[in-house]
């Protein structure tokens, strides 16, 4: 088993649903998105072209972050995913510097601290965040997804990094990653690159495809197929 993902640029409408689904599923802090986007704007008005590239950890076969991590906190798991062990993370940020995709993030502060505020915005009129958290429950945040805890801490620590792990807690129970499930146009397909009959391999065989910054030799396992070409639907 070797997980990978195909993103169909023709089908991606740039809605950002993947980003929001990821955020809800993985309880990422406000300023950290495991799933994000690259926007490329080229040309000059009125001939401007805009490209939206949905992106996250590329789970590279030759991952620079894994090589650079001094403590093996960033490592490959049995399914070839690049995963992070926060207990071993010393906060050196070598993975962030070495990742050519800019998709690893550092918790400069303790995440979700706003929910520990005991002061209501309007005294007697609104609940204090801490009161709301006590009423609703949830680890550190009322939005926390307890299922996340199966493979990764729901609440991350200050001084450690975090990144996409392809929702490995969902893959383990036969579900697709949250970003894949949420995509309204099925632009994201996850599957087994080792299986020649898998949908991901069939799509790559049909359309070709390319990973981001492949020239660096990282061997990314997120492959983009087709280009956004609105004239096809004109």
């Amino acid at each position: 088993m070797k997980y990978g993902m195909v993103i169909d640029q023709q089908l991606c409408v740039g809605c950002g649903g993947c980003t929001l689904a990821c955020k809800a599923e993985n309880n990422t802090p406000g300023d950290i998105n495991w799933c994000d986007k690259i926007t490329r704007t080229t040309g000059k008005f009125p001939d401007v072209q805009f490209e939206y590239v949905s992106t996250m950890c590329n789970h590279c076969d030759n991952a620079p972050c894994v090589k650079a991590c001094p403590t093996q906190a960033m490592h490959k798991d049995e399914n070839g995913l690049t995963v992070h062990d926060p207990k071993k993370c010393i906060g050196c940020k070598a993975c962030i510097i070495n990742c050519p995709y800019g998709v690893i993030h550092f918790n400069w502060e303790k995440p979700h601290e706003a929910w520990r505020d005991s002061e209501a915005l309007v005294d007697g009129g609104t609940s204090a965040p801490l009161d709301l958290l006590a009423m609703v429950g949830g680890e550190g945040s009322p939005h926390a997804n307890p299922e996340r805890a199966a493979t990764y801490p729901v609440m991350r620590s200050a001084g450690t990094v975090e990144k996409c792990n392809f929702c490995d807690h969902r893959l383990k129970v036969g579900l697709e990653p949250a970003c894949v499930e949420a995509c309204p146009s099925r632009a994201r397909i996850v599957g087994d690159f080792d299986d020649p009959e898998s949908e991901v391999n069939r799509l790559i065989a049909t359309h070709g495809g390319k990973g981001l910054r492949e020239e660096l030799g990282t061997k990314p396992r997120v492959i983009y197929i087709r280009n956004y070409s609105p004239e096809r639907h004109a």
């Binding site: 650079a68 991590c69 001094p70 403590t71 093996q72 906190a73 207990k87 050196c92």
Partner: peptide, 12 residues
């Protein structure tokens, strides 16, 4: 963890 889980491929 630098001692307990060393990674010799890491310059750091």
């Amino acid at each position: 963890w630098i001692i307990l889980s060393p990674n010799p491929s890491s310059p750091i």
